[in-house]
Design a protein around this nucleic acid. Structure first.
Lengths: 240, 240
DNA sequence: TCTCCGCTTAGGGAATTCGTACTGCGATAC
DNA sequence: GTATCGCAGTACGAATTCCCTAAGCGGAGA
């Protein structure tokens, strides 16, 4: 049962109806917008998992809408276009669309592309579990085990740990941690970060005064040091 | 392969005869209805795995019949239509049909679409029943048993439980639960969710004050924790 | 009419987050 | 060698936010 949230953007009510009934029958949750402005607002508010976006919209064009949304969100966007001109495809993909479907489209083709985009995106989003003899972290299940015992991390603690492990081996700057966990408007106030690091060490390190995992990189930030035989694919991640 | 149950709805006995012989020869079990009313009643009673529904019925139209059945069942419906107009397709899909075949149709095409619909449906919709010593949930039948006794869940309660079990082991965010059960325009108002969770625990947990199944993940959402020996294929599904 | 469902509100209690103060350490400047 | 500065670690309390539960109310359907 997939419950992915899909935002359908098209100015023609009929198209929206068809898409809604088809998609919602497959278990997706649908919201609709009939203009670019509305789409942008809804994308902010309801945070859909995927957007189906008509190229040809009154007012703000589909391309501009796509660009705007892409500027702050990584949500997969599939463009719907009547034309099959090569130019349009290029422009659409260039604006940040993940895929496009030319109208008239077959329902099955559309569904296949939707599934593919969702799969790709969630695959990219998932951070593989970290595992060593002493420490295990499963990000999907949001579980942390220290020497076989489950421990509880507060949300900020968990997020900071996640950011560090995502870049394991490499130092992560204060600024980056603050922005990733507290929000883009943070960057300087390291007091809170220090507190969270402190708590993390108390919970994770054998000897918090001599950390072996969460190391500080003076004047730079912090670094997660994996023990030699830790199993975890090193993902390529970046923000900011 | 299967002995899938197919309900054939058409007012012309000749069409029904052809369909019955063709399909039953392929191993399907056939029931027939000659009107919308009869179709609705049979759909309720015999719970077919697929419905072939003529668009053009005396009395209640095929479209209305489709809509009615779709309002309480997710059974795949294939519409049979004499016309091939784009409008009809839209209307049919809009009413909740999965597919349509224009008469006169080739037998092979029909069979292909039947197979495709059955396959799709069993792949997409089937959330395997959850079963443990204490708790059993059958999503298709919409039944819940607690230590051998059937209990009743309100629709919202059932939906929330379904969402949680679909992601068993992983925490599900408030936002996702709200959007999946209440609709995409929800996301912040967690009050109702808390009430539903409370009621679910009262109905399901042995000791609602110390839940063992429906756990809260503070600041994140909720999590369904399957007991170690629960039998249920772990569905590979994920969202943000 | 009666029942059930869903929504809303209110209160207590718990956990997290945030701010501040204090200490320690190392590098640099004098 | 000593003083100073900046960064990092720690502790603690206040404020905020969140969670649970109970109870009341209105509406839809039996």
């Amino acid at each position: 049962m997939s419950t992915a949230n899909i935002l359908v953007v098209d100015d023609e009510p009929q198209i929206r109806r068809v898409l809604r009934s088809t998609l919602s029958f497959r278990g997706y949750v649908i919201s609709e917008a009939s203009s670019g402005e509305e789409a942008i607002e809804l994308a902010r508010k309801s945070k859909p998992d995927l957007i189906l976006l008509d190229l040809n919209l009154p007012g703000i064009s589909g391309i501009e809408t796509c660009r705007e949304i892409r500027s702050w969100s990584a949500v997969p966007i599939i463009m719907l276009t009547v034309r099959s001109a090569e130019r349009d495809k290029v422009v659409a993909l260039d604006a940040g669309a993940d895929d496009y479907v030319t109208k008239p489209f077959g329902i099955e083709e559309l569904l296949a592309r939707v599934r593919a985009s969702l799969r790709r995106h969630s695959a990219a989003e998932a951070l593989p579990p970290f595992q060593s003899r002493y420490l295990e972290v499963d990000f999907e299940e949001r579980r942390v085990m220290v020497s076989g015992e489950a421990i509880h991390l507060a949300p900020k603690e968990f997020e900071v740990l996640k950011q560090l492990i995502a870049q394991q081996g490499k130092p992560v700057t204060h600024r980056r941690l603050l922005q990733a966990v507290w929000g883009p408007e943070y960057g300087e106030e390291t007091e809170n970060l220090r507190v969270v690091i402190n708590q993390l060490r108390k919970k994770i390190e054998k000897d918090p005064s001599q950390p072996k995992y969460i190391l500080t990189e003076p004047w730079v930030g912090y670094r997660f040091e994996p023990p030699k035989a830790a199993t975890s694919k090193t993902p390529t991640r970046d923000e900011t």
